[in-house]
C-alpha cells in the first residue's frame, strides 16, 4: 500500500492518530456485526429466557418463509423501478441542461437542492400530496376515474414509495450525468455532425455509449440507495404496508428486530443484507478500478 517516500519515524504517534477511528469502528461496527452473525445462529424463546444454538436454522426458516421471499421480491421491484425512474429522468434533464449556455447554472441550482432533503421528509411530503382524503393528486386522479388509496391498494403504495424515493435521487444522478456529459469532448459530437448524424442519432451512437460508465456507476449507487437509504421513506409513508406490499429487506430487519423481537431471524436477515452490501461494494470498486485504467 502506498505511503510517502520518506516517512515520519515515531513509535506511538501513528497509533494515537488512528485510535479514535479504530475504536469507533470496533465498538460500533465490527462488534455489532459480529453479534449479528452470532445471533443469527441462535434462537431465543418467547420470553427471552433461553437461547439455543440452532446453526443455520434461522436461515433455513427465512428461505422457507413466504413473507421473507415476498420481501425479496418487493425489494427487487422497488429498487429496479426507483433506480430506473431516477436515472432516466436525470439523464433527460442533464441532456437538456447540456444544451444551455447561460442558463445552465440557474437550472442546475433549481434541480439539485432535493439532495439536501431528508428521505423521511421527502416521504412525508409525497404522503401528504397523495393523501386519499385531502391530497391534491388523488383528487385529480378521482376526476379521471381512478380511486387512489395507497393505504389499501398494494400497487398504489408501491408507486408512492417509488415516486418519493426517486424524487430525491434525481438530483444526485443529474449532477453526475452533467459531469459525464461535460467530459465528452465537443470534437466527438462535431465529428459525428460532420458525418451527417442528426441530434437523435448522435445521442444514440455517441453520447449514450460514452455515458455508459457513468450510467453503470449510478445504477450501483442507486441500487444501494434504494436498498438501504430509503428506510425512512418506507417508514414515513407506508410502514411496509399494506399487507407487506412495501416491506423491503432493511425495513423487515428493523420490524422483526424491534417490533417483532425476533432477534435470531432479524440477525440472519442482517447477515444476508451485509452479504448484499459487500457484493455491491465489490462491484463498485472493481468498476472504479477499471475506470482508472481507461
Amino acid at each position: 500500500m502506498q505511503t510517502k517516500r520518506t516517512i515520519f519515524r515515531n513509535l506511538w504517534l501513528p497509533y494515537l492518530l488512528v485510535a479514535p477511528q479504530l475504536a469507533i469502528t470496533l465498538i460500533f461496527f465490527l462488534w455489532p456485526a459480529g453479534q449479528a452473525v452470532w445471533q443469527s445462529f441462535l434462537r431465543e424463546d418467547a420470553f427471552g429466557l433461553k437461547t439455543t444454538f440452532i446453526g443455520l436454522g434461522n436461515y433455513e426458516r427465512l428461505l422457507d418463509n413466504p413473507e421473507y421471499l415476498n420481501s425479496l421480491k418487493v425489494t427487487a421491484v422497488f429498487s429496479i423501478s426507483t433506480a430506473t425512474l431516477a436515472i432516466v429522468l436525470a439523464l433527460v434533464l442533464a441532456l437538456a441542461v447540456d444544451r444551455m449556455l447561460r442558463s445552465a447554472r440557474v437550472y442546475t441550482t433549481l434541480l439539485v437542492w432535493p439532495y439536501a432533503v431528508a428521505p423521511a421528509i421527502a416521504g412525508v411530503l409525497w404522503w401528504f400530496i397523495f393523501n386519499p382524503t385531502i391530497g391534491i393528486l388523488p383528487y385529480l386522479l378521482d376526476r379521471v376515474g381512478y380511486d387512489w388509496n395507497h393505504s389499501l391498494i398494494k400497487r398504489d403504495a408501491m408507486i408512492l414509495v417509488i415516486i418519493a424515493a426517486a424524487w430525491k435521487q434525481v438530483s444526485y444522478n443529474f449532477l453526475f450525468f452533467v459531469a459525464g456529459l461535460q467530459a465528452i469532448p465537443a470534437s466527438m459530437r462535431e465529428a459525428a455532425a460532420i458525418d451527417g448524424a442528426g441530434p437523435f442519432k448522435r445521442f444514440w451512437s455517441i453520447t449514450l455509449p460514452l455515458l455508459s460508465p457513468t450510467t453503470f456507476f449510478l445504477l450501483v449507487v442507486n441500487v444501494v440507495y434504494t436498498m438501504f437509504d430509503t428506510f425512512p421513506v418506507i417508514d414515513a409513508v407506508t410502514s411496509g404496508g399494506p399487507a407487506q406490499a412495501t416491506n423491503i429487506l432493511v425495513y423487515k430487519v428493523y420490524r422483526d428486530g424491534f417490533v417483532g423481537l425476533n432477534l435470531g431471524s432479524s440477525a440472519a436477515q442482517s447477515v444476508i443484507l451485509m452479504a448484499i452490501v459487500i457484493s455491491l461494494t465489490v462491484i463498485q470498486f472493481r468498476y472504479i478500478e477499471r475506470r482508472v485504467t481507461y
Binding site: A33, A36, D229, V253, S266, S270
Partner: peptide
C-alpha cells in the same frame, strides 16, 4: 451501513 446492523 447502520440500517443493516441496526439491532446489535
Amino acid at each position: 451501513p447502520v440500517e443493516v446492523r441496526i439491532v446489535p
